[in-house]
Design a protein around this nucleic acid. Structure first.
Length: 272
DNA sequence: ATAAAGTCCTGAAAGC
DNA sequence: TGCTTTCAGGACTTTA
């Protein structure tokens, strides 16, 4: 599930449910989601600290923590603490629940807060997870990421893709080229831009590349609003699981195949 | 049993 | 030739 729009939704959850709240408890129900940090260190690092303003780059979500002391007038920010970094893999999510709500089967970590609610990191398959990091660690993560898909402008987008010889879909999916796009988004964007997914990026002229950027912006705008790539009937995503899927634009039979190991759906007529 | 919205690793092929 | 980029496949993990 989690591509950029989903992660953006989790950021909103954190903003409304966690920001400014003190962490009173950390229950690790399955340590399999911890990356590079143990239960003890995670708890001692977080308990008593306040959650700061969450921010996102690609599919990563970062949550700074601040000193646990209540904010004073002179020192509103508080001392800098460690930073929580979430990556949701294919099945992860962040939920806001009532403080005493019984955990769901895949709630791997429950963060109890000083208000009436708690935050849960839920993940069926534990493909990625939660880590504890700092400014240097964030830099290391971001070194491997291209510009964020939601904020990248046309020239930077063109530059990121120009000359790449891989299939345009593979390049869009490559987080070191553009950060945040996943399998569904890429298919949706290329369908909207009328570009076949296996087209080599370097064979695309500036005009086509800019068209992909425009399509990306439109698809992201709606998807971020909906907090997921919406399975609307007017979108490719709303058709890809049909028995015999047809293009919502021209009615042709959709094709399905594999591009860099991922299931790929496209319209052979609209995307020559 | 096969497949799944993510990433990482390997080995091989392609390109400069 | 050698370096880099890219691809395919498998691995991780759990459930429908």
């Amino acid at each position: 599930m989690p591509e950029l729009p989903d992660v953006e939704g989790f950021r909103q959850v954190l903003l409304s449910c966690g920001r400014g709240r003190r962490v009173t408890g950390v229950r690790v129900r399955d340590a399999g989601v911890l990356r590079g940090v143990g239960v003890t260190r995670l708890r001692s690092a977080l308990e008593g600290r306040r959650l700061g303003t969450p921010w996102r780059h690609g599919k990563w979500l970062f949550v700074p923590t601040e000193d646990g002391a209540p904010p004073r007038g002179e020192d509103p920010a508080g001392a800098e603490g460690p930073v929580l970094a979430f990556h949701f893999g294919m099945t992860g999510s962040l939920r806001c629940g009532a403080r005493d709500e019984a955990p769901a089967p895949h709630d791997r970590i429950v963060f109890t807060l000083d208000g009436p609610r708690s935050l849960r990191y839920r993940d069926q398959r534990k493909l990625q997870g939660v880590r504890l990091t700092d400014a240097a660690g964030i830099d290391r993560i971001r070194e491997g990421l291209g510009p964020d898909a939601l904020s990248v402008h046309k020239p930077e987008f063109e530059e990121a893709l120009a000359g790449r010889r891989g299939a345009v879909k593979s390049e869009l999916m490559d987080q070191s080229v553009i950060a945040g796009l996943g399998n569904l988004l890429c298919d949706e964007i290329l369908w909207r831009a009328r570009v076949a997914p296996r087209t080599a990026a370097r064979d695309m002229d500036g005009r086509t590349l800019r068209g992909v950027h425009t399509a990306m912006g439109r698809v992201l705008k709606t998807s971020v609003h909906d907090r997921c790539v919406p399975p609307r009937r007017g979108w490719l995503t709303g058709r890809r699981d049909d028995g015999d899927p047809h293009c919502p634009r021209c009615g042709s039979s959709l094709r399905s195949g594999r591009v860099s190991g991922r299931r790929t759906v496209w319209c052979p007529v609209c995307q020559p």
